[in-house]
Design a protein around this nucleic acid. Sequence first.
DNA 1: GCGTGCATTATTGGCACCAATTTTGACGCC
DNA 2: GGCGTCAAAATTGGTGCCAATAATGCACGC
Lengths: 221, 221
Amino acid sequence: MDELPRAGWPNEETAPPGVAERLARDIQAGRFQPGSWLKQIELQRRYGANRSEIRKALEHLASKRLIQYLPNRGYFVHREDDAVAAEIRDIRIMLETSAAEFMARNAAEHHVVELETLAKRFAALLDAGTMVEIYEVNLAFHRALLATTGNHSLVELVSELRLRTSPAPASQWSTRRRMEQSAREHFEIVEALRARDVARLHVIIERHISQPETEEADKGR
Amino acid sequence: MDELPRAGWPNEETAPPGVAERLARDIQAGRFQPGSWLKQIELQRRYGANRSEIRKALEHLASKRLIQYLPNRGYFVHREDDAVAAEIRDIRIMLETSAAEFMARNAAEHHVVELETLAKRFAALLDAGTMVEIYEVNLAFHRALLATTGNHSLVELVSELRLRTSPAPASQWSTRRRMEQSAREHFEIVEALRARDVARLHVIIERHISQPETEEADKGR
DNA sequence: GCGTGCATTATTGGCACCAATTTTGACGCC
DNA sequence: GGCGTCAAAATTGGTGCCAATAATGCACGC
């Protein structure tokens, strides 16, 4: 009498990547043009999945706003909208700066150490790494930073918001100068966190988020 | 050669309510017990829809975290988790207090008037209205308040967050005293907004969100 | 009386096929 | 050459059926 359903995988991270995740990565990596149709038969072949799985994955990504749906037409890759992108950037700033208070309160020392490691790795990759590597470490840093709040829902929420904006060719960051600036700010954040300086955290994080990804938004306004 | 897909309904609000929306409302209203299985055949009958529609709606709500999915078992109504509920409450506080700045900057006079109307209606319903009506007007007030920021994505995001927590029987608010307190705070918010007093807005909104829905969280910790 | 194993039942999941809709391409007309 | 019309092709959407899997109930043995 199993009337008490329990979630299957205790740790979502360790679950095998499904079709939705793979498709999401492909879209994010720009392997599908924004605005192009996602034909179910093609996806079926590409991912070696059946129709049901494909439809489920498509609906999943549609409700995450990664793709859009039109009845009797199908699903197509979401088109970047400058206005919406700006809105989401604002939301991220609201969330991550407000989170500063929780970070300072809840961050343990091992969190700070991990962040420092990631900040160092990011800085090191500026010379040696590819754009994709840099992008991923930056992602990991922000994820880890938010994780210090202890609010897991917050981490996930921001990750989802990122999916909605991150421009397809992740390779095109800003200029070299900006990347170096970002690297410096990462260390500043770690320091401020270690010092439990909420106000300073607030300021740095706001500057940090506004900067790196504003070029498109600035151009568009 | 329509290679330029455009969204169909310009205004999402005016689109006819699909199965997902109806099911979401039914879950929110508590017509399905938390943890109970959502059998596709039953939903098919209930909503007069076919299997594909049902599956789409289920997957949609699952990715919104309103329900959960287990392979080969099906979908079941999401179980309220006090810890997660507290996390989401924190997120809402972060968002709505940070939004104060944008409200003060972007709110037009007609926004303030609309808010005042809603605040009055809320207060009036305390005596004359049903719990559901009060709940709905409160929802409308918060929605309208966020809408003054001009950030439509923010409005939607918070609405989705609400779906994830709002206790099934919306009828059970706190005590009468708290409802009166909420009504007072609504007017305070309107005043602070009219005065463009960001700091005061911040304080009132934080108190306002923390209060009304903490009873379950407080009980659980 | 209680647990175990087995058959039955219920439900999801996948498949093939057909219908409905849309897009594409071609043809003819102005 | 451009435009509208119409047929053909491609794609999504719906249905019924069967397999796979999980829950249920029952009989049996201890």
